[in-house]
């Protein structure tokens, strides 16, 4: 365990740092690549997407992903805690079934269905992303809390801890790696779905891609795609790092 731990960790360090550097360079430096895109695509009048700044789009993209993920963690986390308490156990099977079945629904279809219900704009995107992110969060919350060994809970009871204290000081810390895995799945899916949300009127990094596809401007497509891909890789690498810390911390 300790012998093999070093090499992958160095690889991860590299992936996160390299990704972060690449992301920042792409977001800030894209305008200075204009001559490059002009050379690559000589037939395009406008080789650089300039309707919105990439900084603005990146921040909006992250805000949409962050808000929906946060809402999903709060709602899904509470639901997961509720159904693992004695008073909520009756709802557990239903919640798990909905979480499993819901994840077979393609995210893009859920996003599209939000429009007939709520209209165009960032709000339907936010709702659709939140709903979709709920599913892996709930699933892993329940699985994580379920995986806490019964003897540990008995010991906590024996020490005279109250149920709230047991939840926050024993169950949630022990379940943290599994919960984090669910959050990671949710966030990564949301980074991709948020990009597609440009088709329902949310201004995200998908906007240059959609505009480029509709107007046959390949330069726009590449600019948006590079940044959103870098963003996803960086966030995933960040979660990898976080998971490593958490595992070491919970094994202490």
């Amino acid at each position: 365990m300790t012998g093999t731990g070093m090499a992958p960790r160095e690889f991860l360090t590299d992936r996160l740092m390299l990704g972060l550097v690449a992301l920042v360079a792409l977001v800030l430096g894209m305008p200075s690549l204009k001559p490059l895109f002009a050379t690559l695509f000589p037939r395009l009048d406008r080789p650089l997407y300039e309707a919105e700044s990439f900084v603005r789009l990146t921040l909006d993209h992250m805000a949409l992903v962050g808000l929906s993920s946060l809402a999903a963690i709060l709602l899904g986390g509470s639901a997961g805690i509720a159904v693992t308490r004695p008073w909520g156990r009756e709802f557990r099977g239903l919640l798990e079934t909905v979480a499993t079945m819901g994840q077979t629904f393609p995210p893009v279809a859920v996003l599209a269905l939000a429009v007939p219900v709520m209209g165009f704009g960032p709000e339907p995107a936010l709702i659709a992303l939140t709903l979709y992110a709920l599913l892996p969060v709930v699933e892993n919350m329940v699985a994580g809390l379920d995986g806490v060994p019964a003897p540990v809970l008995d010991a906590a009871h024996g020490l005279g801890m109250g149920s709230a204290e047991i939840l926050f000081r024993v169950e949630l810390p022990l379940a943290a790696p599994v919960i984090l895995a669910g959050v990671r799945t949710a966030v990564i899916i949301n980074v991709g779905t948020a990009a597609i949300a440009s088709t329902v009127g949310a201004k995200t990094l998908g906007l240059p891609i959609i505009v480029g596809l509709n107007g046959s401007n390949q330069a726009y497509v590449i600019q948006g795609a590079l940044i959103v891909a870098a963003l996803a890789v960086v966030i995933d690498a960040g979660f990898d790092r976080l998971a490593g810390w958490l595992t070491r911390w919970s094994q202490r």
Binding site: I188, G192, A195, I196, I209, I222, V228, A229, A232, V233
Partner: peptide, 17 residues
């Protein structure tokens, strides 16, 4: 794993050129 992380719309876009 990295491929799986890249959003679909980005991968489609990057394959185009």
């Amino acid at each position: 794993n990295v491929v799986q992380t890249v959003p679909s719309i980005a991968l489609f876009g990057l394959l185009m050129a």
